[in-house]
Design a binder for these strands. Sequence first.
DNA 1: ATGTCTTTTGATAGTTACTGTCAAATTATA
DNA 2: TATAATTTGACAGTAACTATCAAAAGACAT
Lengths: 199, 199
Amino acid sequence: MPPDDKRTMGLRERKKAKTMAAVQMHALRLFRELGYNATTVEQIAEAAEISPSTFFRYFSTKEDVLLRDNYDPVLVDAFEAQPSHLSPLQAVRQAMVSAIADMSADELTTMRERNELIMTVPELRAASLNSLTQTMQLIAELAAKRTGREPDDAAVRTFAGAVIGVNISVMLYYAEHPDADFAGLLDEALSKLEAGLPL
Amino acid sequence: MPPDDKRTMGLRERKKAKTMAAVQMHALRLFRELGYNATTVEQIAEAAEISPSTFFRYFSTKEDVLLRDNYDPVLVDAFEAQPSHLSPLQAVRQAMVSAIADMSADELTTMRERNELIMTVPELRAASLNSLTQTMQLIAELAAKRTGREPDDAAVRTFAGAVIGVNISVMLYYAEHPDADFAGLLDEALSKLEAGLPL
DNA sequence: ATGTCTTTTGATAGTTACTGTCAAATTATA
DNA sequence: TATAATTTGACAGTAACTATCAAAAGACAT
């Protein structure tokens, strides 16, 4: 048996993907309509026409339904596609900017709305920041590979920490200024890091 | 009536402070003995000889019992005590290092144990990172005041983000390497920021 | 199509963090 | 010592999760 892919394989898989997307959609809608805390898992389940049990089979927590989308693979691809003459910082900067540039208008809108919700609701923000530590580790690994160092090298860890920190500050600012240009904010901020944080 | 201080004012206040400290102590002990999730609020309350209701009157959440200690005021004092010829980054660096240097051996031990627990348990880590956004805002305000800019100036926000990010990476590393020198790690990391993240 | 095997689902019951309310107990004050 | 203010504990309730198990639905061989 070859691994697994046979025309998006099976009715089962397709159905699962569809319910999962439906649940996420209804959840986002309800959160925006009623507020995150005022929305119960039961309501989400009902709206998506599944049982509460099934909700937790798809998403391990209530937060997870919003946070599941993982941009890490996109970032990895974009980073590794950067020409090798760029410094790690320049490569990260370019990777992030171009990853955003590749997104459709719909994706950008959803991302903005999600970011607004996440950064606004303490519980969501906490969970989201927590998952950023994984991304931080990822960035450390990418930078390590590119420079031939170890991922737990002090310079590499510091680099990853600074990049993530800058991202956090941009995400927080963007939540309060939804009309700003996200990619532009990120680009500007990372360029300041490159310049040694002039003040 | 002058604000409030009359020999640490009243029996009530003293008693409250004592129970609060007792609860935190028992909580930390139980968390280390049984694990965070396996310890119930009821157990903590029983150990500290209070009712569960009272626990939640002192601490708004189970996490809060560990995360309550707030080093922000210490940081503010240390920062503002730095000579004005230092750059904001140098001032933060010095402030953090000297704040740690001023701690007693006991305080350092407790801090190490707490950090280990917090960075290890996902729920605690999430809540802790969330509260770091407040510290980030604080650092932005301090840097703004020192440079005569606005706290939401792009350079100021980026500065605060980078500083917090570096702190996160150090805290994570320190949790896995408890024998390392925390102040030293922080000092080294912040110096790399100053140098423009050489890699 | 039919029967069989595997995976997915929903119902049910239980735990625990957390909230609100109220009367009893404790401390401050006159 | 009497009275007012504050703190506490008991009780009841909500909602996020977990575990279990039988029923439903998709996969697959004949």
